[in-house]
Amino acid sequence: MKKSVILGALTVAGLSAGAAAAGTLDDVKARGKLNCGVTTGLVGFAAPDANGEWKGFDVAVCRAIAAAVLNDPTAVEFVPTTGKTRFTALASGEIDVLARNTTWTFSRDVDLKFTFVGVNYYDGQGFMVPKALGVSSAKDLDGATVCIQTGTTTELNLADFFRANNISYEPVPIETNAEAQQQYLAGACDVYTTDASGLAATRATFEAPGDHVLLPEIISKEPLGPLVRHGDDEWGDVVRWTLNALITAEELGVTSANVNEMAANTGNPEVARLLGTEGTLGDMLGLDAEWSKRAIAAGGNYGEVFAKNIGEETPIGLARGLNAQWTDGGLIYSPPFR
């Protein structure tokens, strides 16, 4: 019966310990754990596996940050958030960084007072239909019933698209991906729409993935990326440059396998600056010199993370597409480390 009293007392004790620290970076260091907000389960991006380990593309970003700041990629407390709770969780300080396939939009950045530190996945909203329906374009969907997973920008994009094309539809908003899938497979809706990556991940779990097609139209821009609270720029910088370090590492050919070797004997000054053997970039961030090395070693560079979690080798099977390095014609581009 007194459980919560004790919990409360503990919280008060924790409060007095943490009250002195000012910025999130110091908080995280003092706590020894990174609190990272993720989704409640989207295979490939963030989902607990059968052993309860969080796995996925967004999870890897959190682990890289923890490795950079705390020297331990496992020192992450994953806080599952829904579309409803994620912003409060971040604003109230329950989590330090939100890495939950969240679309970077004007109002979220400006009105809700968050800082998007970058983009780790360029997505767009797509449609999936059964092949048997014989639809080849989203513009043929007049009068269709559309299943939407709520809690994202999906509803708004959908409304805009159908209004712009002057065709009608019937939305069926569903809370979880699993339930939306079940509705779609039972034929309660003709179309399932969410981010194209999510559609691919969903289709991969079907009994007969070949019976369903993704329509060519991508109706929105969905730059997904981690975000932090407005106003704490030191912490924002740490998260931003950890993400950039992963991206730059891929560009420069630094992988989790060769990162130590590269750090020891590289002729390339860019690699040397990235890995902290040259210059004092780590100091400027308030971290040590080897921060980026650890971040890369934790889960690999951007390309490795992509391939391991959502790439073509995985059941989700996403091509790099827009998410290729800029050198390969994609949009993934990190500012220089200097």
């Binding site: 007072k113 539809y169 939305p171 106003g231």
Partner: peptide
Amino acid sequence: AAGLNIAYDFLGSPAGYDIN
């Protein structure tokens, strides 16, 4: 601290989503 305020003027802006 979060730079937020309590205001109800969002109620007057377009909702942007459809209801079935």
